[in-house]
Design a protein around this nucleic acid. Structure first.
Lengths: 189, 189
DNA sequence: GTCTATATGCTGATAGAC
DNA sequence: GTCTATCAGCATATAGAC
């Protein structure tokens, strides 16, 4: 039972890495099994299908990142500070939290069973940012929906170009992103 | 010869649509052939492999979008206006220019021959925006690299959520994106 | 240029021993 | 829980007729 949970957890990590690096289709069950040090058939003791494995990866990753963002928001005061803290936590997980979270950014093939659930999980998570942006004081002509999608787009695109030891640290990136949006918008002049 | 070029062009369009909708691996040569109204083997008269087909899709799409952006920049004066015009053209192609351009945003599996070339084509195209941003007058502490990546990220992420007849028109989106970045940055106070 | 027919290999998944 | 062995199907790609 405990052993089973360990293996299950290990499989999730390995699968996420494969899904991220190869994409869902190219990440074969054989490859995942090999990376996890077991045979293909053994995976099916822990997960009923490859699709179920992908769904489980999303559940785990989004649960973890949601907790990280909520933790980062504890005791932070000020609307813009809170937004920046959430962005920093989001980028921290995405860029340096292991391949687990990058897997969530990949395309989900249309034939995957549980695709709708995956989209729902993603949407639920992103609602944190909608709430934070709703709290901002903005000039009346600013569209909050666009602002949210712009910020999330900028953040979620980082995983295509960011490399460890090269680009700016996640927290620096969060500061710049929010600063670039901030100064112009917060005061009704 | 002319007939061959027509077929080749048609295959490119069909393949791009399949690559976008299904992802590279799930878009089988059988499916592409079927959608194009021919047999699998016939594709190989026009393209030597599936990988070559993907590379050709990128060459065509990036060539076209580059021309569209350059055309949109003709006779536009003012650094911020030029950036906005380029963004509008970019979004116009990406969102309403057919699936051709969305295919370029998808993940390229690591095993694809010509992967490096594809990345080079993407980088070359994005240099347009680096040049436009280099022309802006910004407060000295603003990082232009971050600004470029932020804007491209926001734009390239749109194809994950934008739907025809729902979201804002591409030109409106371009205006909001640039406006959100603009007011705060252009004057050294 | 497009076809039929086929080679070869990899895919997700299952059966059943241990 | 993990294994060996295997299935049926689909993948890319090629050979050669028309």
């Amino acid at each position: 039972m405990t052993n089973s949970n360990n293996r299950r957890q290990q499989l999730l990590e390995v699968a996420a890495t494969c899904f991220y690096r190869e994409g869902y289709d190219a990440a074969s069950m054989r490859l995942i099994a090999e990376q996890a040090g077991m045979r293909t058939a053994s995976i099916y003791y822990h997960f009923e299908s490859k699709d179920a494995l992908l769904v489980a990866v999303h559940e785990e990753a989004l649960h973890r990142i949601q907790e990280a963002v909520n933790a980062a928001l504890m005791d932070v005061k000020g609307e813009w500070n809170r937004l920046e803290a959430a962005c920093a936590a989001h980028l921290e997980m995405l860029l340096t939290g292991g391949t687990f979270f990058k897997a969530v950014m990949r395309h989900v093939p249309s034939a995957v069973e549980g695709r709708e659930l995956i989209f729902k999980l993603r949407d639920d998570y992103e609602r944190i940012f909608a709430d934070l942006i709703a709290d901002l004081e903005l000039s009346p002509e600013t569209d909050r929906g666009t602002l949210r999608l712009m910020l999330l787009g900028a953040m979620n695109w980082t995983f295509t170009w960011w490399r460890p030891h090269e680009g700016p640290a996640p927290a620096v990136l969060a500061f710049r992103f929010v600063t670039n949006l901030r100064s112009c918008l917060d005061l009704p002049a």
